[in-house]
Design a protein around this nucleic acid. Structure first.
Length: 596
DNA sequence: GTTAGGG
DNA sequence: CCCTAAC
């Protein structure tokens, strides 16, 4: 599926429309240049459509975007550049590039763009199917010229991304989908759809990447778990992309962010991706060592069996927690995945990657096999994550996602991290993005495979992090059963009998979980119940039945100590359920028998 | 080796 | 989840 024809035959003068529209990812092959190619085609068609149906709206959007995006220098230069469409585009893009990525690529990109654009234009016109589009070409060029520039660029960006992702994510899906959709019927709509889908895909993939599990992501139509809101419009690419997706539907949604965000990730692609990488790693290495000098020691000491972590931990903790927690499963993957691409260049990558893989593979028990190494790796990865996080990624989005999907209890930490990101984002986003995309892509591939290879309950998968696995309902139930049978405090037994299957979940874990359940059930926090309750709401919603049972058991077996205060007697006589009861009866029987 | 409890 | 102290 990933072996698209290396080049699109625009030399012929005739391009397969379907191909053009349907498999824009093909363009991806020649990367930078070709991408533009696709973009233009789509743009042309989009334009038409837009001009007809959404003309006003579009304008509005574009302006809106333009203003937001092009503030300061960019905006000024923009105004000056009203020359020709291509010129415009190029300029704009280049500006965007400069704006975000730096001048070096701007030029080259521009050139590429231009060339490919021309080619595309020609071929498009020739193509009978696209005739309408071609015709339209002129008008919109002139009329919508100004207004379109921004969206144009956006499209460009987005498309580029899309194509890339498309190829990586699910060219198959795409192809199939499109095939079914009467390709020739209306190129425009097709294009629109494509775009939409691509956006979806790209956003999807991105987000998914962020999340450990969302296999679903691969299919464009899948519903995202998070709600695409522009929380912080200037956040990272995610937001923008989302907005981009709905561009034609909700002009509000579009919003500024998209352009910068997408630009970031766009054209740069492979060439550029590497550069950042290098620098990245170097930078990463330092900061990490710097910040987490201790931290690194932690893992190693751990694995080595050294016993003086305490100090290390103290220092490392602050750093480490924010890094791991906030990113949560969702975020983590992407970060780690980012690293993957870098891998080829240094062994460090391997480490990271491995760990990453572990995450992705999630359930595969294998991941746990080499706990030592794994741990170390994970630590390393974590460190990198931390770095990366700071540099990029939309904290807001992630957060949201985390909250919805994982519903984990990482609130505090997340907040801290978030702040940091926002601050740094603008500066560093540039460098990171391109690579990021690559990474994402890589991740996706890997992910896809892994997901399908290791099918697990989505629940578990989703909830899992480095050394953190979300408790599944089933597990909780088991725990409850265990407690009901053996009472509180006999965690090892419960572990043995109820969790023998799951290697993770130590007795301590059970205990901890029980503790949490008590908290969640509202029992326990006798002091400040109100506050407790509120917090409880934030936690992962537990089935009422479970909460109820927990409550019951809690009354029967008050956790901390002083077991069975009320029902102590009862318990004594008729211990509770199954086992104990049986034993009691048995004893009684024996006694009676003996007595007799 | 387990458990309780704090972080 | 992790770690440690105290069984």
């Amino acid at each position: 599926m990933e072996n698209g024809p290396p080049t699109i035959g625009f030399e012929d003068g005739t391009i397969d429309v379907e191909r053009l529209l349907v498999e824009p990812q093909d363009g991806h092959v020649s990367v930078d240049s070709v991408m533009c190619f696709n973009d233009i085609a789509e743009n042309a068609m989009e334009m038409e459509e837009v001009s007809r149906c959404f003309g006003v709206r579009n304008t509005a959007v574009s302006q809106e975007c333009g203003e937001d995006i092009l503030n300061g220098d960019v905006l000024d230069s923009m105004r000056e550049v009203e020359v020709g469409y291509f010129r415009m585009q190029n300029d704009f893009c280049s500006m965007g590039e400069e704006y975000l990525l730096g001048v070096e690529f701007a030029e080259s990109i521009t050139n590429l763009d231009y060339g490919s654009s021309e080619g595309l234009q020609t071929s498009v016109s020739d193509s009978p199917v696209l005739a309408s589009a071609a015709v339209t070409d002129t008008p919109w060029k002139a009329d919508l010229f100004k207004t379109m520039e921004v969206p144009e660029c956006q499209n460009h960006q987005l498309n580029a991304d899309s194509s890339r992702f498309g190829e990586i994510c699910g060219p198959c899906d795409k192809s199939e989908t499109y095939a079914e959709e009467e390709p020739l019927k209306s190129p425009t709509s097709c294009a629109l759809q494509d775009i939409g889908k691509f956006h979806d895909i790209s956003s999807c993939s991105f987000q998914d990447i962020l999340s450990d599990e969302n296999d679903t992501s691969l299919s464009p139509s899948v519903d995202m778990l998070y709600s695409p809101k522009n929380e912080k419009s200037s956040e990272f690419g995610l937001t923008g992309q989302n907005g981009g997706t709905k561009r034609f539907q909700e002009r509000d949604a579009l919003v500024t962010t998209s352009a910068p965000a997408s630009q970031t990730d766009t054209l740069p692609t492979q060439k550029r991706s590497r550069k950042p990488t290098q620098r990245y790693i170097d930078e990463l290495a330092d900061p990490i060592s710097r910040h987490t000098k201790k931290r690194r020691e932690v893992p190693s000491s751990k694995s080595l069996g050294v016993k003086d972590h305490k100090k290390c931990r103290v220092g490392s903790r602050a750093i480490r927690l924010p890094a791991e927690e906030p990113s949560v499963k969702a975020i983590q993957v992407p970060f780690a995945s980012l690293v993957q691409n870098e891998r080829p260049e240094s062994c460090a990558y391997d480490m990271v990657r491995s760990s990453d893989r572990g995450n992705l593979m999630t359930k595969s028990k294998d991941s746990r096999i080499s706990s030592e190494n794994q741990k170390k790796k994970d630590e390393f990865a974590a460190a990198i994550h931390l770095k990366k996080r700071d540099e990029s990624v939309s904290a807001a989005t992630q957060r949201k996602r985390d909250g919805n999907v994982t519903a984990v209890h990482l609130k505090k930490r997340e907040d801290n991290v978030t702040a940091v990101h926002i601050k740094k984002r603008d500066d560093d986003i540039t460098a990171v993005s391109p690579q990021k995309w690559d990474d994402c892509v890589a991740t996706l591939r890997q992910k896809k495979r892994d997901d399908y290879l290791t099918a697990e309950s989505s629940e578990e998968v989703i909830g899992r992090r480095k050394h953190h696995r979300l408790w599944t309902i089933a597990e909780v139930k088991k725990l409850i059963d265990g407690v009901s049978e053996y009472g509180v405090g006999r965690w090892s037994r419960i572990k043995k009998l109820f969790f023998s299957a799951s290697a993770h979940r130590t007795s301590v874990d059970l205990k901890d979980k029980w503790r949490n359940l008590l908290k969640a059930s509202g029992i326990q926090g006798q002091g400040s119940r109100q506050g407790e309750k509120k917090r409880n709401m934030a936690w992962r919603p537990l089935p009422k039945s479970i909460l109820r049972r927990v409550c019951e058991l809690a009354t029967i077996y008050p956790y901390p100590k002083g077991r069975k205060p009320k029902i102590a007697h009862i318990h004594h006589d008729s211990p509770d359920r199954s086992t104990d009861i049986t034993l009691g009866d048995y004893r009684r029987i024996l006694r009676s028998i003996n007595g007799n």
